[in-house]
Structure formats: C-alpha cells, structure tokens
C-alpha cells in the first residue's frame, strides 16, 4: 500500500503545479502518526500549493484531521501521539527539534470544528494573538489589526459597535468568523480549518465559504470537510483519505469528475462513507 500511496503522492505533485500554478507551500513525505499502539496515518505524502484552497475529504476516522493537525503540530498536545516522516513549510522542517513550536503556530493558524471564542470581549479575542506575539507597539496599532481582521473575516459591519461585548454572545456563524478573524490577526501564512462549517446553519456556511475563497488570495488554506459539495465549491486541490491512507490527491475537478481510484469514485458517488 505504501507503494500506491507514494505513487498517488508523486502524481499529485505534478497536478499541483499544473492546476494552480503555485509553488509548493507544504511538503509532506511519508508522514505516519501513532496514537499509542494504534497507527492512525500510513505514509502520507503530498505537496500543498501556496495561495490556494486544499480540501481533505474522506469518511470519519480516515486520518484527515490527524494529518491536518500534524501541520501545526497540534498533535504535540496529545501525550500518546507520535509523528514520523517529514513535513516542511517553505523547505523548513517543522519537526526539527530546534524549531520553536510557538513560532510555527504563529505561521500556521487553525480554525476548529466548533467555534471556540475565548470567554472575553470580541476585541480581546482578536487582540489576543497580536498581544502574545508582541506584534503591536501601541493601542492604535492594535485597533487597526482588530478592525482589519474583522473586515477580512466579513464581520466588521455586524460587530463594529459592540467590540467590548462578550464574544460568547454572538451567533454560531459569527463566532466561527470571529475565530477566523482571530487566526488572521496574527498574519499567518497558512490557515488550517478542521470542518469549520459542521456546526453551522446553511446561511452561515455560505458566508464562511465565500470568506475562504477571498482569503485564498493572501493565505494558503487547508480545509477538512465532510461536505463533498463544499470541497467541490471552495477547493482547488482535493485529497481523499481512507483508513489512514491518502488514496488520491489531485486537483478538485479531476477528483470529482474523473477519479483515478475506484475507492474515490465510490466515496464521492455516495456508495460508502
């Protein structure tokens, strides 16, 4: 199976350059993940292009979130989790022992499945990242970052007059956009999104999808989704995971209209998963 995976990986590299014309941002080779005795990821290799949206699809427990969490080393917070293989961002090995994980996470932001605003005001939620990273010198700088982040997340008009109110009082969709704004505020290069719309209603989902499309201009976005239509709508590249293996990775049009692998075809036509 390893052979097949690496084969899929090498195919994808060509596709990546063909479709988006963008340089490789994240480069993963033979990534494996173990949770204690249990292996969750088997030799995943892929090149993720910059300034594009890459979607990971696949049935529950297929390893797509696990792989996503390798990219900003969120798996470090789980004691029993061990990661093998090699992941580089802009040719820098992110599992290099000399690398500061705090700085890595400032470069690779993350948005979670459930909106998780801090129990603080809207303003403080956005200002949290810039503050801990010392990105600002003055209050007006910070105000500027808060405003521009909220504007880019399409939330400014709705909340500009109530920045001091608690973030937890907003609707689910607004909270999720706040979390995106919070991630943007640190000026990351990559934003990871772990099923960002699964807890939201269709209208909020549409908002977020539009937002993702706009954000592509400035950020590399990697999104895990259960919603195949969503993957087709927002992404340029799609990777299909199954049982911890990357089955197929190609540009989104190809994956959905002309899948190379029968398992991919079965999944996207709804025969399993």
């Amino acid at each position: 199976m390893n052979e097949a995976t690496s084969h899929a990986g090498s195919v994808s590299v060509q596709h990546a350059h063909d479709v988006t014309g963008m340089p490789t941002k994240v480069h993963a080779r033979e990534v494996t993940v173990h949770y204690g005795e249990k292996q969750a990821l088997f030799g995943v290799s892929m090149d993720i292009p910059a300034n594009s949206v890459t979607a990971f699809i696949g049935p529950s427990g297929c390893g797509k979130s696990t792989f996503l969490r390798c990219i900003n080393r969120m798996n470090d917070t789980i004691d029993i989790c061990s990661v093998g293989g090699r992941i580089t961002i802009d040719e820098q090995d992110i599992y290099d022992p000399s690398l500061d994980v705090v700085q890595l996470r400032a470069r690779v932001g993350m948005v979670f499945q459930k909106p998780n605003p801090f129990p603080k005001s809207i303003y403080d939620n956005i200002a949290y990242g810039p503050r801990i990273h010392g990105l600002v010198r003055s209050k007006s700088d910070l105000d500027g970052i808060v405003e521009s982040s909220l504007k880019r997340a399409g939330l400014w008009k709705e909340v500009s007059d109530r920045l001091s109110e608690p973030a937890t009082g907003m609707s689910g969709g607004q909270q999720q956009r706040l979390c995106i704004a919070r991630a943007i505020a640190v000026s990351p290069e990559i934003i990871l999104m772990d099923e960002p719309c699964s807890a939201l209603d269709p209208i909020s989902t549409a908002h977020i999808e539009e937002l993702i499309d706009e954000l592509r201009e400035n950020f590399t976005i990697i999104i895990v989704t259960h919603n195949l239509q969503q993957a087709a709508r927002v992404s340029q590249m799609t990777g299909f995971f199954h049982l911890g293996k990357l089955i197929e990775y190609a540009d989104t049009g190809d994956v959905f209209q002309n899948p190379q692998h029968s398992m991919t075809e079965d999944y996207i036509t709804g025969r399993f998963g």
């Binding site: 900003n72 969120m74 917070t77 705090v102 700085q103 890595l104 996470r105 400032a106 932001g109 993350m110 979670f112 459930k114 998780n116 605003p117 801090f118 129990p119 603080k120 949290y128 990242g129 801990i132 990273h133 979390c179 919070r182 991630a183 640190v186 990871l192």
Partner: peptide
C-alpha cells in the same frame, strides 16, 4: 473546555499564557 486550550495553542500561545489569560 479543551477547545479553549486548543484555540490558544493554535494561536501560538505558550502554556503559561494560555493558563493566565484564557
């Protein structure tokens, strides 16, 4: 909730910053 710890960690907060501020 663990989600708040994850959220702070994903922003690059250290453990101490997460604990004190969140």
């Amino acid at each position: 909730p663990q989600s708040l710890r994850d959220g702070a960690a994903a922003l690059g907060a250290t453990r101490r910053e997460t604990i004190i501020q969140v």
